[in-house]
Amino acid sequence: MQWMTLFQKELLENWRNKKWIWVPLVIILLSIMDPLTTYYLPYIIEATGGMPSGVVIEELPEYAPSEVLLMTLSQLSMLGVLVIVLISMGTISGERKSGVSELVLVKPVSYMNYITAKWVSYLLLVWVSLFLGILVSWYYINILFGTLSFGDFVTTFFFYGIWLTFVVSLTIFYNTLFKSSGLVAFFSILSIMVMSMITKIFHHILDWSPNNITEYIIDTISTGEISKDLILTGIITTALSLTLILLSSQFLKRKEMAG
């Protein structure tokens, strides 16, 4: 099956260029950074020579497990998203620029197969990395800050995975528009920033914007009930991701493979 051939090639490529090693490690590192530094902050301050003279902190704030989880997700939303954009920014644009896509797409390859094989391979990498990252974060939160149920872990992993799916889809979409990987990264990050700004400004209208997903995950964990808003935001985000992939296939089909 042609799709499997393309998919296996993507997996092999990501294995040989070590993405399967360093991406999970980076995501794990980002995920545990806040739980660990927050918990060990007094020790860190002490070990680094204490506070400057005159500064007195009576008591460091105590954090609820859901608050620490929010810190982890915030970290992933900034640096994690950046890492995902960087690993996928050249997946199509790079092949078009180097000319490899000429050799591939001159064969009877379906454009949809070409795009979705890349998309799924990056989703697999991102979801596996996220699973490990959230799992380790959940473990430390449970040990250091208090109980977070397994259900909370699954909810966080699943719905945050949907947000990262959107990030991958957006990057793939820009890959079909530009030949320069730099431009792909720039427009992907710009789009996420603009979406975030618009969501903040029009928060009262844009209830189900993908950028709200983190907020709804934390609400769900705090209340213990999966909110309708989270489900609808998840559905909208998935639909947007699928639309971006469909559009990518159409755009690539219309593009001339040779410059």
Partner: peptide
């Protein structure tokens, strides 16, 4: 093409099998 570009991380045999399967 005049200047063919390959997946240079593949071996010659792997690239041919990949091309054939495509």
């Amino acid at each position: 093409p005049q200047y063919p570009a390959f997946h240079s991380w593949m071996t010659g045999r792997e690239f041919l099998i990949y091309s054939g399967k495509l």
